[in-house]
């Protein structure tokens, strides 16, 4: 949050932002070097947006050590959030794409995953953002840690001993993605009812309402006035109960 404020004051236009990206950022490069020195080979990838953000991708086994180094060596005492991303393209809901949508590619289960900055090799990635609020750069400076989690072993070491605030974040991550945190003082449901089955933020979690009924909004799609009628009217695949197969 505080960093975003600094960004808007620094770069109000995209030109200014582009110019910044070509600059070097000694502070964040120094942070990266410090983390590399502390973790050795465990730093797998990194990305610096000069003046804005540092991303560091670490090995899963070094997840806790990376956070410890960020807190101890970089002074990132403020824990912002911890979450995960499921990079798998969702197979559900594609039937609702209509002729008026442009630029949507059909679902291809074999396509390589897009994994954002600093790369990634697995479907699930763990994220954590910690901030040094003592304004080493004139404003608070953040580092975003990432770690790949193999599908067959979705677990990482809990950050609760370091950051007490990670407790609820890890509980949410556990119930929403099914990622286990070793050493967490009490992994139990936070938002979901106790008897809930499944992990709803996984991309392959089926939304049952959509399986039995196509998205009602699609029947309302009308062409813009003055434009020719779309070749295939909006109801494309509306009667198609198979959610995965109706991609246009």
């Amino acid at each position: 949050m505080s960093d975003a404020t600094g960004t808007t004051t620094d770069a109000t236009t995209t030109e200014a932002q582009d110019a910044q990206d070509t600059e070097t950022d000694e502070l964040r490069q120094g942070w990266l070097d410090t983390l590399s020195e502390a973790l050795g080979d465990a730093v797998i990838g990194s990305h610096i947006a000069p003046g804005r953000t540092l991303w560091v991708r670490v090995a899963r086994d070094a997840w806790f050590d990376a956070a410890e180094a960020a807190k101890g060596r970089l002074g990132c005492t403020f824990f912002d959030f911890l979450s995960a991303i499921d990079w798998m393209p969702s197979p559900w809901g594609r039937y609702e794409y209509s002729a008026v949508d442009v630029g949507i590619k059909p679902f291809d289960p074999t396509a390589p995953l897009a994994t954002g900055v600093a790369g990634g090799d697995t479907r699930f990635q763990l994220f954590c953002r910690v901030v040094n609020v003592r304004k080493p750069d004139g404003h608070p400076v953040e580092v975003i840690l990432k770690a790949d989690l193999p599908d067959e072993d979705l677990r990482a070491r809990s950050l609760v001993p370091l950051y007490g605030g990670a407790n609820w974040h890890e509980r949410e991550c556990w119930e929403m993605f099914g990622i286990t945190f070793d050493g967490h003082p009490g992994l139990r449901h936070l938002y979901l009812p106790g008897e809930f089955e499944g992990h709803p933020l996984r991309k392959d979690f089926p939304l049952l309402a959509r399986l039995v009924k196509p998205w009602p909004g699609i029947v309302d799609v009308e062409p813009m006035p003055g434009e020719p009628e779309a070749a295939e009217p909006a109801a494309n695949g509306a009667g198609d109960g198979d959610a995965g197969g109706g991609a246009t």
């Binding site: 938002y191 979901l192 499944g198 709803p200 979690f205 939304l207 309402a209 959509r210 998205w215 009602p216």
Partner: peptide, 13 residues
Amino acid sequence: CGGPYWDSYSVTK
């Protein structure tokens, strides 16, 4: 009826 959250995993319909 669930309204805009008609397909949510958590909202009662």
